[in-house]
Amino acid sequence: MAEALLVPAVALGLGLVLAALRFLRGPHVLDRVVAFDGLTVISISALVLVALATGRGIYLDVALVYALLSFLGVIVAGRYLEGGE
C-alpha cells in the first residue's frame, strides 16, 4: 500500500515545488499569498496521504484544522492588502 502511494506523492511534491517557486518569485505580495494558499491546499491532500500511509486517522483532524486556519489567514491577508494602494 505504502509503495503504491508513491505516485500521488510525487505528483503532490511537484505541485508543491511549482507553487513554492511562485511564492519565491512573486512579484506582487498578492502573488505570494495566492501561491501560499495553493501550497496549503496541496498540503491538505499531502496530510491525508500521510494518514493513509501510516494508518493514523489523527492526521485527518490535523488536515481539517489546517484548512480552517489557513482560510482565516488568507482572508485576513486579502482584507489587509486591499487598502495597500
Partner: peptide, 13 residues
C-alpha cells in the same frame, strides 16, 4: 486528484 493538484501548481507558475 494528485495530478490535478500538480496542474494547479503548474498553473500558479
Amino acid at each position: 486528484g494528485a495530478v490535478f493538484l500538480a496542474l494547479g501548481g503548474l498553473g500558479l507558475w
